[in-house]
Design a protein around this nucleic acid. Structure first.
Lengths: 303, 303
DNA sequence: CAATACCATAAGTATTTACTTATGGTAAAA
DNA sequence: TTTTACCATAAGTAAATACTTATGGTATTG
């Protein structure tokens, strides 16, 4: 029996329409082409598959049996096709990741690791502020977002994958720099250089202070963490930033982390996408990769 | 994707041996032939299926996925092949028989005998009235029909296989019950409980009476032979039914067959299918079986 | 290092495939 | 009765298929 898939496909079409002519139309063929395929199939099998009574054709018993199997086979072919198509997606494709500016300090490392595993995947990284992330999520302009506290307004799937401790920074020559276990009340009198309103860090700071019944005294407002750090270094006030942004500054001794009692503020990094979004295979792979890598990353960057 | 079964077969062989060369041997091919088939398959799919590490080849992820589906598909092809092979014989299959309600009394016995001979054949028996039989024939919903007088309108192949005598029945206490050689004129004055118009028995009765220039006096109309018999037993009139329906009633003495001169009306049972219908091997076997069994059946049920 | 075992690639080819157009037959519908 | 709707069959054809033989490259193995 050397049945071909072509024959089965034509057979299915004929069976489903109960008509050679309809099948021919569906398959963009002439009617004789269909007749021939069926005839060959019947020849291969050794049994008639259709019987003609007047104008109408009917499946024979054998035809009915074959139809069941044939449908099942083509369904399986479709399945495997889809599976393989998705795997192809992993081999090459594009991944769009957007990260909060604060997160930029470690996401580059994550992406580098992922890229090495999946050469052929083009990674597009966009670093923007919280508001930018939200519009990107809303407009489906990105596959995955990495950010601090995600908003509750949008329907989002958020997964925490790493701690995000916010610490108080000061220039080396600041009076508090050498003290230990600084009580929270001492910080109330200090001026803080802050991020713009709406920024994740700014929101966290304000909530933190108000929870303790304290008033946050704000100095200059900066739109980036880099600017904050430079301002603090220049003596314009204290700052509160994610510890992940401080690697270089701590190493080179430009800034110091105050040993304040109520700190660090413990927050988390989240990997985020909109509910209902169909993640591409690459995106899924990246999400899993991030969750798996988070632990080891954390230990490296936090020690 | 225009994967061929050939490609899948070669792929399976290679995968199961983890070797192109072995596969070539198994398939009685040269090694390059195998290489080409695999290469084409990979081309169709768009993914590598094997990877080569030194001398050995391994299935890739995609290859493993495909292998599962491929095995399943060829298993199904084997299954259907076997099924169809069996259908070519008589070992398996389905037989759809529809019978007139009157015929039901003896066809069950026929079918039982046939089933015993051909275990594995599923018999579907549908008992319906004359009109139902005709639509089933028209719509090719049945393989064979057993009925009394077949209609001439449709193109049918009809074969008489057994006599079908219609007799007059009466309750035991009926005045005519004890008489012999009752002349036809005596019956004209009697009221008859009859089947619905269009029923085979009703048609036969009416023709029979009109052929003799007599008027049929009808009482109640019943839609089944069982109802007729009960009505007759209850004294609502005489009845005319096939003798095949009377086995139990005669044995238990609830009814009697009148010894009327013009009776029994001799009709026949026919086995029927539409002209041009391709009878399955099973259906052919059943038809032959019926024709052969008819004689012995007749002697048993008619004595 | 040489031999060996494997797979890849190239070139060539007989056969098969999958159609097409043209035409004919038949049952049902008008 | 004529027309219509369907399927079967025949003849012809460009393209694809499924091989073959010959050869080359590359790890492992002895």
């Amino acid at each position: 029996m050397k049945v071909t898939l072509r024959q089965l496909k034509v057979f299915e079409s004929v069976a489903s329409h109960s008509s050679y002519t309809r099948a021919a139309e569906e398959l963009h063929l002439t009617q004789p082409a269909v007749s021939m395929q069926i005839k060959q199939l019947e020849g291969n099998i050794g049994l008639p598959l259709f019987e003609r009574l007047g104008k109408k054709i009917y499946l024979t018993e054998a035809g009915k049996e074959l139809y069941g199997y044939s449908s099942s086979i083509s369904r399986q072919l479709n399945e495997i096709e889809e599976i393989l198509e998705n795997m192809k997606g992993l081999a090459r494709g594009r991944l769009r990741v957007s990260v909060a500016s604060t997160a930029n300090y470690f996401t580059t490392r994550l992406l580098a690791g992922f890229s090495k595993l999946h050469t052929g995947v083009t990674v597009v990284l966009d670093v923007t502020n919280r508001a930018g992330l939200l519009t990107q999520l809303a407009n489906n302009e990105t596959d995955l977002v990495i950010m601090g506290q995600p908003p509750q307004e949008l329907d989002l799937v958020t997964t925490a994958f790493m701690e995000n401790p916010l610490v108080v920074i000061a220039p080396l020559n600041h009076p508090l720099a050498t003290e230990n276990q600084i009580p929270f009340v001492r910080l109330q009198d200090e001026t803080f250089v802050v991020r713009e309103p709406g920024s994740g860090t700014r929101i966290a700071m304000e909530r933190y202070f108000s929870e303790r019944g304290a008033r946050l005294t704000t100095g200059m407002e900066m739109t980036s963490n880099e600017a904050i750090k430079q301002a603090v270094e220049a003596g314009l006030g204290l700052g509160i930033v994610s510890i992940h942004t401080l690697e270089l500054e701590l190493e080179t001794g430009r800034l110091t982390v105050l040993d304040a009692r109520a700190f660090p503020i413990l927050r988390h990094w989240y990997i985020v996408h909109r509910q209902g979004k169909r993640l591409s295979p690459i995106a899924q792979a990246f999400k899993i990769f991030v969750l798996e890598e988070a632990t080891s990353m954390a230990s490296k960057t936090l020690n």
